Simulated scan of single mutants.
Amino acid sequence: MAPHPAPPQEPQDSPDGYVGLDVAHAERLARERGWPTVRPLPPDAIITMEYRAGRLNFEVRDGRVARAWKG
């Protein structure tokens, strides 16, 4: 039987720290902190609910992060 690959590690980083930041700065900071996937989304975007380890989501309003969450 083939070994199971280890799930991607998530940075020990709180999404709350990105709220209020300019989206370009927040994306750059998240990548520097080790997030492999950063996904900016418009307000009320329709998205799937699957959890993806290593992904950080930003809800962006007027060029700033209004909400941030993992997965």
Rank of each mutant, 00 (worst) to 15 (best):
57 N>H: 06
12 Q>N: 13
64 R>F: 05
62 D>C: 00
49 M>R: 02
36 P>Y: 05
37 T>M: 06
59 E>Y: 01
62 D>N: 04
12 Q>I: 10
59 E>F: 00
28 R>T: 15
32 E>M: 00
67 R>P: 06
16 D>C: 08
49 M>N: 09
41 L>G: 00
36 P>V: 05
29 L>E: 14
68 A>H: 07
16 D>F: 10
61 R>V: 07
35 W>K: 06
14 S>I: 10
61 R>S: 05
12 Q>P: 12
56 L>P: 12
39 R>E: 08
50 E>V: 08
67 R>W: 01
20 G>V: 10
63 G>A: 02
71 G>M: 07
64 R>Q: 08
10 E>M: 08
41 L>W: 01
46 I>H: 02
58 F>D: 04
27 E>I: 10
30 A>F: 12
35 W>C: 05
20 G>A: 06
49 M>F: 02
32 E>K: 12
41 L>M: 00
68 A>L: 03
63 G>V: 01
56 L>K: 01
9 Q>P: 14
35 W>R: 02
39 R>K: 11
31 R>N: 13
58 F>H: 13
47 I>P: 14
37 T>V: 08
67 R>N: 08
54 G>W: 10
52 R>P: 09
58 F>E: 06
44 D>Y: 07
31 R>K: 13
40 P>A: 06
52 R>S: 07
1 M>Y: 15
53 A>H: 00
29 L>Q: 14
59 E>G: 01
32 E>P: 15
55 R>Q: 07
42 P>M: 00
21 L>G: 13
38 V>W: 09
20 G>D: 12
5 P>W: 05
23 V>L: 05
45 A>T: 11
58 F>W: 13
4 H>E: 15
41 L>Q: 04
39 R>S: 10
48 T>Q: 01
2 A>S: 15
1 M>N: 14
28 R>V: 14
44 D>C: 09
51 Y>N: 09
9 Q>M: 03
42 P>V: 05
55 R>D: 11
36 P>R: 03
62 D>A: 00
48 T>H: 14
68 A>N: 05
22 D>R: 02
33 R>I: 11
37 T>P: 12
31 R>P: 15
5 P>C: 11
54 G>Q: 07
71 G>K: 01
57 N>F: 09
